[in-house]
Design a protein around this nucleic acid. Structure first.
Lengths: 361, 361
DNA sequence: ATTTAGCACTCAAGTCTACAGAGTGCTAAT
DNA sequence: ATTAGCACTCTGTAGACTTGAGTGCTAAAT
């Protein structure tokens, strides 16, 4: 609601010496201490705790009055009177926007990500799935990779391949190297040459077009060829409608069981992750709002109110195409998780971009 | 350890009137009542409870002494003195083998499964994944589908398709309609005709062979063609090594959070499900032991000691190929779950079999 | 020789009280 | 503005007590 930017002021070195945006320097320090402590311990943080964990030269009483202010302004809450303070969504938001130094990308992680992408090979689906697992293992949070549909790539070739005398396999090969396929029963036997001819005709027609073009079928003077083309047209247009469908890869769902201790929360979050549509729209919403982190109620999904979502965009040749995300409790290790998501997002984007035109770097 | 067969004696109609195999009729009835009650309530079952839920004309005291016997023989335990009885793995085993009438396959479920397979279409992976989800939703347990590698099918065609002047896409098309692919960088520009020639040669060489054959590359008199063949040989043999790799589809992991109330159990079971290798070998072990159900410690995996695994085989044209499984707590709705797994296994087997030769029924 | 009624016994779980400890908010002094 | 001091509040734990479900045993009944 309040802050939209993640990167704003000059990226100073270590934490705690930022230009505060709405909070006095001291309050901001206190807030930082509370958030940091609570992320670690999951226990409400009391005033004397803050005194020992910061280098503020004040007494607990002073901290208390400041914390009371912070509570009134909505950054902190108490589970009950006479307990310590716990950050609210707004508190975490301030922490992420102003206190968690975004420049502190730990080098070893980046190295591990690089290593991974040097090692991994094989089909794109495999790479995406393993990327998701990597991110989950790196961060100990559940991860999500939403891969682009084929909206941007164009058709490289359409092949018909006879599997038997009466059935053919339809392959649509895209310029990024992915393949869509479908088996078609012709009803009666057809000569191999007829199939080949139809195949050539199809490639000639569609080459360079986008998947959406597959709804219009070409015609042929030969009745036999025409029969094949007609039989194939149905499945082809089906493929075109699948074109935009995003693929979702979920990594490390078991991490959720570590992150929450109420089994009911685990259940509901897991079941959200099973609904791919929801996941896709969640990430899209978060991305389009210009945020890279959505905390608690910031995204509209009530079942995920106790979660934070970190999203990094995927880009293929500079164009937005999917996203990688992390799902954890609101008391999340934001700096580390954001760095990991960013690193994986970047490296994966690069990998996806090179896949298409096989650059020799 | 004791019983291996699932279907043995005559399949009588309703429960409770079986020929007892090691237990007196009455004890067996008592055991049945305890298991059934405990599966429902998750509460230890006391002697008076058994009296009301069976039609035995005896007093609680008699039940008690019988239950004490059943405990001594290892079918039941007590969480503590003065609590009711809870089935042991052995108790569940007897229940599954002798008491849960296997013939009671509920018709509506079978119908739902049929419906599903009539509706579902698209790529094989998609069908497998959705089958897994279906099974999970049908039973409210987590489900696993382990799909066959490509060991049995043979090669229908090998296609090289130019994506750019210096890179080609290698497609290996199998007779079951699946496609393996890999992108190859040729290093320098190659004429389209050369690529086409290499493609024809490859198909001629490999057609009808199994994937494993891809390690030996053919040779060509033309130096240019030879260059392409050499460039392609590496990826091809990689594909051949991928051949046997099973695909694992997990459905409804969130159901696990319902099935167990200790979050730690949920975590450990989930993380098992993430290790596909373990899942595959688990199902294989269970299948090969001739059982369709493994309860508690019957499989060797300690982290799954509180789980039962139900497995139904998948067959393609009569040959064993993969399995569908269910993973739930030992206090599982065995009859329903077994029926569902069996139904989905059968229908899916049929579907997989027809995929290859596209029968028109 | 079973079956059963009766009884003593055990244990988990709930209720109540007491109490220590962590933490707050307020007030009055610095 | 800061802080020491104090009263207050709330949680959590521990112990004492009660309740209730359920058992095992024994001796009588069938």
């Amino acid at each position: 609601m309040s802050a939209k930017e993640t990167k704003d002021s000059a990226p100073s070195g270590s934490a705690g010496e930022h230009a505060p945006t709405e909070l006095s320097e001291r309050r901001s320090s206190i807030l930082e201490a509370v958030v940091a402590e609570y992320i670690q311990s999951a226990q409400p943080v009391g005033s004397s705790h803050v005194v020992t964990s910061t280098d503020l030269k004040v007494s607990p009483a002073t901290i208390r009055s400041e914390m009371a202010q912070l509570e009134q302004e909505g950054y902190l809450t108490q589970p009950h009177t006479s307990a310590g303070r716990v950050p609210t969504d707004k508190g975490y938001r301030f922490f992420v926007d102003h206190l968690a130094a975004p420049s502190s990308t730990p080098a070893p992680q980046v190295k591990e990500v690089r290593n991974f992408f040097d090692q991994i090979h094989g089909e794109m689906e495999h790479v995406l799935e393993e990327s998701s697992n990597l991110l989950a293992n790196l961060t100990s949070y559940a991860s999500v990779v939403v891969a682009p549909g084929h909206t941007t790539t164009s058709i490289a070739s359409v092949q018909l391949i006879a599997l038997s005398s009466t059935s053919v396999l339809v392959l649509v090969i895209l310029t990024d190297g992915t393949v869509e396929r479908s088996t078609v029963d012709l009803g009666s036997a057809v000569e191999a040459e007829i199939v080949a001819e139809a195949s050539t005709l199809l490639t000639a027609t569609y080459k360079g077009a986008e998947l959406q073009a597959l709804t219009a079928t070409p015609t042929s003077p030969s009745a036999e060829v025409q029969r094949v083309l007609t039989a194939v047209s149905g499945p082809l247009s089906l493929l075109s409608s699948d074109a935009g469908e995003a693929q979702v890869f979920v990594g490390g769902p078991s991490k959720l069981a570590d992150a929450f201790d109420a089994v009911e929360t685990v259940r509901s979050v897991l079941s959200i992750l099973e609904q791919q549509l929801v996941v896709v729209s969640l990430l899209r919403d978060v991305l389009s709002s210009g945020l890279s982190v959505a905390i608690g109620h910031e995204h509209g999904y009530e079942p995920l109110a106790s979660c934070a979502v970190i999203v990094a965009p995927l880009e293929i040749d500079g164009k937005a195409a999917g996203a990688v995300g992390l799902l954890g409790p609101t008391r999340m290790q934001y700096p580390a998780a954001m760095a990991a998501a960013k690193a994986v997002g970047q490296e994966l984007s690069e990998r996806l971009s090179t896949l298409g035109h096989e650059v020799d770097h």
